[in-house]
Amino acid sequence: MASWAFTLLAGAFLASLVAVFVWQGLPAWRQAGFGYITGKQWFYRQQIFGTLSMIYGTVAVSLVALVCAVPIGIGAALCTAEFLPPKPRLFVKVTVELLAGIPSVVYGLLGILFLRDWVYQALTPFDPLSGDTLLTAGLLVGVMILPTILSLADDALRGVPALQRQAARGLGLNRSEVVWSVVLPQAAPGIVAAVLLALGRSLGEMIAVFLVVGRQDNQWPESLASLRPLISAGQTLSSKLGGSETNIAYGDSLHWAAMVNLGLLLLAMVTVVTLLAFRLLKSDRHA
């Protein structure tokens, strides 16, 4: 009976987490309505709460991270899963999984002391204000999610039965052709799930982003296609919520609600991504 109770407890924890965020965030919805999502300005002293600039920051950082990490991660997974003999493969995979465990605060530290300066120097021709940019945060998160993508994509590739490869090799296809025509199509759902889980992580990543993103409010870009805002400071949902404003806000129920709602937005984004990944994993081993 205790087992059931524990399962319910875990469910209740998740439910109450969601409930608390919804409930505590209500006043902000009442005050700002949809403007909470569509508004670009956030001035808490004037009680203006618009989060679009932060949503932009979160999406921009995650996209930069994915653009960097996905091709390299999948390429590397192809190498480990398809081309490397078992022993080196195991070595690479184990090392990479160890590195997947490096705490984000350590990545943040590396970002603050190395990456920030490198980005600043590399961007000198574009005259940036500092090395704290959305791009810096995106690169840092990209490095952070690289091991996740590599490891999960490797799992997905290894999930394709060896006989399928043998049959295709037996027809005279070379290694790359087998990968393209047999392995990748079958591993695709698992690989996409890997990318989605990594995306979920990058959307919610706070510590590392916080340290290098510049935390500049109200940085809505003039053009969404422009890359210019990427090389200036910005703010993400998580870096805002993790900052000192959270401590200030408690006590002022409207301001607090606006802060908590940042978490709710984040939760909604991550949940959608997780649900998609879970659907794709349906046919996988857990089914």
């Binding site: 875990a10 998740l14 959307l203 919610g204 993790g242 984040l266 939760l267 991550v270 949940t271």
Partner: peptide, 8 residues
């Protein structure tokens, strides 16, 4: 539960 960002 695994997907919930740790900040939350």
């Amino acid at each position: 539960l695994n997907g919930v960002p740790s900040l939350l």
